[in-house]
């Protein structure tokens, strides 16, 4: 799953905060594709700033797979030229291609995925199309990623990242919070940030005014 990073001015502060995040949760970014949203960079810093910011991201060993928020022409002639641009389908060349009529026989992909067995350590469930419901535990060392919300009827001991598609609207629900990491949209937290008070309790995780909130049900 690609993560989107959106650098903002002042860049020194943004990169310092970003480095802090990288240090506290290096695993989170490990081997994960990253897309840079450069709209803010372009607006305030102009086209030269784009290259500096991309260099800065690359220097942090991120797997940059694309940029968005900028016109493709701005990167033409630079070494970033070949990164896919404007991932939201604004690429004219693609739109111009004649579209064969969609196969009507293909069943629409289900909006949710139900897993009624434990998700074991080392297993990874990725479902970009919608919600994931798990009847059973998610083990330490397992991960679940969903386009929408994640429901765990059991202990959540591994990591769960919701909202790959729906962003901040997604939530994570679990019957027993013992997770290593939870994330919604672009926000995430590791276990050491929520402390012992919530450990083992039924909890929902949601985005509240730009911050991740964990609230118990009981």
């Amino acid at each position: 799953m690609a993560l989107v990073v959106a650098p903002e001015f002042p860049m020194t502060n943004w990169f310092a905060a970003f480095d802090q995040q990288l240090r506290s949760a290096a695993d989170f970014f490990a081997d994960r594709p990253v897309v840079a949203d450069l709209a803010a960079t372009l607006e305030e810093g102009g086209p030269e700033a784009l290259l500096i910011v991309l260099d800065g991201l690359e220097a942090r060993n991120l797997r940059l797979v694309g940029v968005e928020g900028v016109d493709a022409a701005l990167l033409a002639g630079t070494r970033w030229e070949r990164l896919p641009k404007a991932l939201h389908g604004r690429d004219l060349a693609l739109e111009a291609r004649s579209d064969p009529s969609p196969p009507p026989e293909a069943a629409p992909s289900p909006p949710s995925l139900l897993i009624d067995r434990p998700v074991r350590s080392g297993q990874s469930i990725v479902f970009e199309d919608g919600d994931v419901t798990i009847v059973g535990p998610v083990s330490s060392g397992a991960e679940v990623m969903a386009g929408g919300s994640i429901h765990v009827y059991g202990s959540l001991r591994g990591r769960a990242i919701a909202g790959l598609k729906t962003g901040a609207a997604a939530r994570i629900f679990c019957r027993k919070l013992e997770a290593e990491l939870v994330g919604v949209g672009q926000l995430y937290r590791t276990a050491e940030h929520w402390g012992a008070a919530l450990h083992g309790r039924p909890v929902q995780v949601l985005c509240d005014r730009g911050a991740l909130r964990l609230s118990p049900f009981d």
């Binding site: 074991r120 350590s121 080392g122």
Partner: peptide, 13 residues
């Protein structure tokens, strides 16, 4: 226990 959990996942797949 965590390693066993991983092995159970592999037994199932």
């Amino acid at each position: 226990v965590r390693d066993s959990d991983r092995i159970i996942g592999m037994l199932d797949s």
